[in-house]
């Protein structure tokens, strides 16, 4: 079986084992075994606003994957963007020397041999294999929210349309579900904004959920989106609490179409019931 290194990121690691679990199930179904990177740390993103040492942390994580000899799969837009930009910055030989001087006491070395791919990119590149594993067609209306930082800046990600990405739509369409257009599809969820201003962050999330409310399911592929749109749902106001829109991560939806059990995908009983009712 093909092996890859999984970099879930702090949010998924601490709060969303469901997303990681569904990812492992779906990737395993298409013949990829992902392994967590022992001793991996934060990607470095939260440091960048304060110190240039964000790059040391990013390079540290990449060097661990390099030592495993594996490509990295990410689950969060923010980690993807940070690790990709670190790889780009470390093409500069002087920075690479500096970073390797810091890594050497840990017997680690950054040589730039590891590629970083967000789960959406990995899956869409294997769309035929994903399709081949589908066992049923989902009779659902699905709205998609894209992990914005996995596509931008395009000069670094080199993947998909940076302003109107299509990959997630293609993946959702492969389940037989109807991909629903909605006004705020390409707007950010608000999770990072929440760190700077709670009210503005929640308002971004509220608008997204309200705009997607005509769908049965809203699908995301980022720890930040999942945090704001699903976990913070209680803060987003009454009308949305009562909305029947179920928020799932992409591998959870794909897993359903592959006939993988709800529990194995980390889908709660309440969400599973709502999905079954919507599909009926």
């Amino acid at each position: 079986m093909e092996r890859m290194a999984l970099f879930p990121g702090c949010l998924v690691l601490q709060r969303m084992p469901q997303y990681e679990k569904a990812t492992k199930e779906v990737l395993s179904a298409i013949g990829i075994r992902v392994e967590n990177i022992p001793r991996a740390a934060c990607c470095g993103a939260p440091l960048e606003s304060f110190t240039d040492r964000w790059l040391y942390l990013a390079a540290y994580n990449l060097s661990l994957a390099e030592r495993m000899g594996l490509e990295v799969v990410t689950l969060c837009g923010n980690c993807t963007n940070t690790l990709l930009r670190a790889n780009a910055a470390l093409e500069d030989p002087s920075l690479r020397l500096e970073v390797n001087a810091v890594l050497s006491p840990m017997e680690l070395r950054y040589d730039g041999k590891t590629t970083v791919k967000h789960l959406v990119q990995l899956l869409v590149e294997r769309l035929d294999e994903v399709r081949a594993r589908m066992t049923s067609r989902l009779s659902l209306r699905v709205a998609v929210t894209h992990p914005c930082q996995a596509f931008r800046p395009h000069e670094v990600s080199g993947f998909d349309d940076p302003l109107e990405p299509q990959a997630m739509r293609q993946l959702v369409a492969s389940t037989g579900a109807e991909v629903v257009d909605y006004l705020t599809e390409h707007d950010c969820c608000g999770a990072t904004l929440y760190l700077g201003d709670r009210q503005l962050g929640l308002e971004a999330g509220r608008r997204k959920l309200a705009s997607a409310a005509g769908a049965d399911v809203l699908v995301d592929a980022c720890g930040n989106c999942q945090l704001l749109l699903e976990r913070f749902r209680g803060f987003l106001g009454d009308s949305h609490e009562r909305s029947r829109l179920v928020v799932l991560t992409l591998p959870q939806l794909l897993g359903l179409a592959m006939g993988i059990d709800d529990a194995a995908l980390g889908i709660s009983a309440a969400s599973a019931r709502a999905i079954a009712e919507a599909a009926a």
Binding site: P162, C188, G196, G201
Partner: peptide
């Protein structure tokens, strides 16, 4: 405020 940002990178794109 330089801190009011959703990190979506749309501006730069």
């Amino acid at each position: 405020s330089s801190w009011l940002c959703s990190s979506c990178w749309r501006c730069q794109e």
